[in-house]
Simulated scan of single mutants.
Amino acid sequence: MGQSLTPPARIGLVGCGAISGQYLTTLARTAGLELVAVADLDRSRAEQVARARPGIRDLPVDDLLTDPDVDIVLNLTTPAAHADIALRAIAAGKDVYGEKPLAATTAQGRAMLSAAASAGVRIGCAPDTVLGTGTQTARRAIDDGLIGAPVAATATMVTAGHERWHPDPDFYYQPGGGPLLDMGPYYVSCLVTLLGPVTAVIAAGSRTRDVRVIGSGPRAGERIPVAVDSHVTGVLTHAGGVLSTLVMSFDAGATRAAHVEVHGELGSLVVPDPNRFDGAVQVRGLSDPDWRPVPESAGYRGAGRGIGLADLAATTPGREPRAGGTFAYHVLNVLESMLTAAATGGTVPVRSRTGRPAAVPLSDG
């Protein structure tokens, strides 16, 4: 995001698990952010991170959340702990930026937003991949009328399950996890960024097996229980009338479907993987013989996980950051409404509302 003219925001990181490495890379190269402390329930993991970075303190979680030298708490705990850590940080007067989803339930998410408003602090939340050149270039193409008025979209994520590679995958198969709440935030955040908020959903879900086997690491071969649906599909109705079809699965090996496609009156757009920041955008008009590339035109170039944290730190106080809590709450509301629809077999209204975040001009991440 270029050079900062103000002192860097001092970051305290809670949760030194697998995803933290990507955030640490972004923190190390971003002028507006300064990592000052780390914490983890497994103190040895925090110590390992601190040892590799001179000047970084490893602290107990409670101490980090109240440390006067921490401006923003970066919450990289498991989904079940997101709300608890965030609420404790907010009570200490800290801004919070968390991994997705915002919380395990919308009730917890509402409590977080309410507490933050009362305390006068800000909440940001992943995924910030939608701020990269892939989704932002697609957004500009749509906003510029390249495919005319959008009519429909599809979003597809198919994998055999994270237990094949993750050494501690238990939380992926507990409430707050599953393909919908783990990977769905990337895809729904992309769809809402491109097409606006969702007003209603229908859905169905299934579970192919009740036990998964860890495939790597010191626990390889251990069996873990599955407490959530591992395949969920549904249709999202956007406020403007666009219908998006969503497929999220931990039950199959692969797919040839595009990660995201948007179909309009004048053509269709292929949007790159919303779990990445970049990627090729392609368009095919009604009279085009084949797909053609859309030149990169918007978004943070070279961005990595944590660019949303930098965006929050650079956002004027009192304004909602692009990867903000209100947006993340709406995405969570959509996902939870899909689970309700899958369980009840009916159409479920989505009560929350959000605007589309401000577009990101083409700039360095």
Rank of each mutant, 00 (worst) to 15 (best):
T6R: 14
P7R: 01
R10K: 15
L13E: 10
C16Y: 02
S20E: 02
Y23Q: 09
T26G: 11
A31T: 15
E34Q: 15
V36L: 07
V38E: 08
S44Q: 15
E47A: 10
A52G: 08
R53Q: 01
D58Y: 12
L59M: 12
L59C: 11
L64E: 02
D67G: 01
I72R: 00
N75M: 00
A80S: 14
A81N: 13
A81V: 03
H82T: 05
A83L: 00
L87F: 00
R88P: 00
A89M: 10
I90N: 00
I90P: 00
A91E: 13
Y97E: 06
G98Q: 13
K100A: 03
A103K: 04
A103T: 11
T106H: 07
R110T: 14
S118H: 13
A119N: 06
V121A: 03
R122P: 08
A126S: 15
P127E: 02
D128N: 09
T129M: 12
T135R: 03
R139I: 08
R140N: 08
R140K: 12
D143G: 03
D144Y: 06
L146R: 13
G148H: 04
P150A: 02
V151N: 04
A153W: 08
T159H: 09
W165P: 07
H166N: 15
P167W: 11
P169L: 05
G176P: 07
G177A: 04
P179C: 09
D182N: 15
Y186I: 07
Y187N: 01
C190S: 14
G196A: 08
A200W: 05
V201F: 04
V213M: 09
I214T: 07
G215R: 03
G221V: 11
R223D: 08
I224Y: 08
V226C: 05
D229N: 11
T233S: 13
G234C: 03
L236A: 02
H238W: 11
G240N: 08
G240W: 04
V242T: 14
S244V: 01
S244N: 04
T245P: 01
T245M: 09
L246A: 07
A254W: 14
A254D: 13
T255N: 04
V260A: 01
E261Q: 13
V262A: 09
V270T: 11
V271A: 05
V271S: 05
P274T: 01
R276K: 08
V283F: 12
G285W: 07
P293E: 06
P293D: 14
V294I: 11
A298W: 12
A298F: 09
Y300L: 14
Y300H: 14
R301E: 09
A303C: 10
G306F: 07
L312F: 03
A313V: 07
A314G: 08
T316I: 05
P321T: 01
G324S: 02
F327K: 06
V331A: 05
V334G: 00
E336N: 04
L339E: 13
R353G: 15
T354P: 03
R356A: 10
P357C: 11
P361F: 07
